[in-house]
Structures are given as structure tokens and as C-alpha cells.
Design a protein around this nucleic acid. Sequence first.
DNA 1: GCAATTATTATTCGTTTGTATAACAATTCA
DNA 2: TGAATTGTTATACAAACGAATAATAATTGC
Lengths: 194, 194
Amino acid sequence: MYRLRRRTDLPNWSDLARMTIARKAFRREGEDIRRMELVQATLSCIAQLGMERTTVREIAIKAGVTPGLIRHYFTSKDELVLAAYVYYVDQLSEQSREAVASTVDEPILRLSAFITANLSAPIVDRTNLSLWAGFIEAIRFSKAMAEVHRDGYMDYRNDAETLIANALKAKGRRVSKSHLRRHGIALNAIIDGL
Amino acid sequence: MYRLRRRTDLPNWSDLARMTIARKAFRREGEDIRRMELVQATLSCIAQLGMERTTVREIAIKAGVTPGLIRHYFTSKDELVLAAYVYYVDQLSEQSREAVASTVDEPILRLSAFITANLSAPIVDRTNLSLWAGFIEAIRFSKAMAEVHRDGYMDYRNDAETLIANALKAKGRRVSKSHLRRHGIALNAIIDGL
DNA sequence: GCAATTATTATTCGTTTGTATAACAATTCA
DNA sequence: TGAATTGTTATACAAACGAATAATAATTGC
């Protein structure tokens, strides 16, 4: 609780000048922690409410802070949404690579693990599908987001191509680079479709 | 041009009371035509600007009318967007069926025509992809739009299943209903992915 | 333990949004 | 031809939005 002090805030009735008004309690966090909290609150909002209803105020509520704080860490809402998208893409590719890395070192099993991981939880679940739906339109209208998307897609395809190449090699088959590229694109298309 | 008359609008200076202000010229259209114009302007906006920036005012500009008119034909913006989505879905399925119907009556060629049509223009082009991206999130938050989407998807899958069944029959192969259903779903997934 | 710094809350601002209402004008019908 | 109807424009409005600024309090460094 704190006492009203500012002159401009004083109501006309002098009695009210003594009124106390609750001020939000808060904890002070390190910069990295706060930024991460805000990013995750943003993702949570987009997944739950959709991009259109993801407002600065809503994100602040979800993060347990006041809207003004967001501007202290991000110069605009667009920048926050971009940071959230970067985090989302990184998380997906990290999970995909983890799934492969935690599989025994055998080319075909690894390719299989890659495909399975990209078709099941946690990569494909309600939340991530909602996020995908929320972001997909924004990518069209933001150069920065389109770039992040493109980079993520290329990394993804490269991973797929490497795994396919190793699997084919293990089977004793040789394959040209252009074939590999086509296989990578096809695999991605099928996984995306499902 | 018309003369200012309303008292509340009169500026303080009496001279201005004689000022003439341009009033937008307009043509009177039949109800069906206007509704269609508004629906198409809405689709045009969503494709060009995305769902988020598709405002009542922007739609009105695109349709060459004033925002108020929209409320004369649709009780809310949501209703207009829903009508636009219905039109969009109908158009897609109509084009798909046309492509099949205009092919010689041979089961395998027809299935082939169906697949080709759903992977190339005019069903798959920039505009329709943009519309798809714009609508996909709205479907999650509108019961009515989700229903339209579900119905459209079921019609689409039924068409696919019928074509697949005929193609298999022509090859002299029998197939169970559940297999057919699975084939229909798989075909849809692959087409969507590509 | 006090002054400076800055993370955080509180408040304000100008704009845009969807919608409601009022004014106007083209058409219809007697 | 003129009064009623209604399609259309013009205006108004309250709420919500992103952003900016002001006030406050926790932390830091001396």
C-alpha cells in the first residue's frame, strides 16, 4: 500500500487525499529471466488466444507484470513477437535434434527417429499447432519473421538430407546431391501435410 | 455537392455555413450484387492485407462504399468474414469438381485430374494460399467457421474416396471401406503438405 | 547508510477499431 | 407527382490498442 502523493491525482474531496491505494507488488528479476518470461507469456498468449487477440496488455497479464514493462525490454510489440517466434523455431529444431541424438548411432534408425519425432509430441501437439497457425500469417507481413522462418526451414531440410544420405549410404546406395535435395523437400512436405 | 444543414455541424463562423462539402456519389445496387461485392472485397482484403489488418473500413474502401453500408447487409464484421469463408470454400470445391467433370470418363484419369487440380492453379495459387493462411487461425476461434471448415473437408474427402474407389475398381481390386477412408485421409494429407 | 541507478508500476495520449445513429437521396408505388 | 421506403453516406461514440511518459521502489556502489 502506498499513499497518494501526486497533486494531479488528488480528487476534489480533501478526505480522499488520505485514501490509500493498492500498488502492485513486484519482484525484481534479472534481465535474461524477464525477457524469457515475456517471450514465454507471448507464446502462451498466441497459442491460447490467437495472434489477433494477443495484445500487449494480455501478454503482461499472462507474465504477471504491467504493460509498461514490456516496453522496457522490447522496443515494440512486433519485436517481442519476433523474439517469441525465434524462440519457438529454436525450440522445435532443438527437440528434433535431441530426438535423433538420443537414438543409437545407426543411420536408418536415426532417420526413422527424426521422422517419428516430427510427427508426434512434443513437436506436434496442440500448443505447437496453435502457435504455427498463429505465426503463419505474420510471416507473410514481416521481413524479419520471414527470414527466421526461411533459416529454420533450411536447417530443417539440411538435417533431413544428411539423415537420408546416411541411410542410403548404409544401404549401399549412392545418390546425387540434387536427388538428395528433392528427397529432403518431399519428406518435409509429407511431414508438414500430416 | 450538398449544402450543410445540420445545426450541430455548423462552424462558428457564419461564412462557413454557406460552404459546400462534397458528398460521395454512389450507385444503388441490388441486394445480391452488393452482398457479393462486399464478400469479394473481404476476400481481397484478407488475401492482400491479412486477417489482422482486414478492418471494416478497409473492406469498405476496397468495395468502393462507406463503412456504414456493411452494417446494412451484415449484422457484424464476424458475419461478413464468415460469409466470405463460405464463399471461399464453395469456390474451391466447385473448381475441384469442375476439373474432374471436364475430364474424360475414365476412373484413373479422373483421380489423376483431381490430384493435379488440387496441386495447381487456380486452386493452389498465391491468392488462395494467402486466404488459407488468413482463415486458418480464425477457424480455431469461431464455431461457425469451424463448422464450415469441417463440412468442406468432409465433402473433399468424400470426393477423394469415391475417385479412389472407382480407380481401384477399374484395376479390378476390391477394397474395404476403412481402407478407403484411410486412403482418402492420406491423399488429403499429402496434397495439403505439398 | 546515503546517493545514484534502474526495474517496475501507474497514468496518459493519440489512433484505430467495431458499431450505432442520423442525414440524405434514389427508387417505388399510389 | 408526391409521399413512403430504403439503400447509402456521414457522423458520433465507447472501447481497446500500441506507445509514451511520469512516479515509485528495489538495488547497487561508494
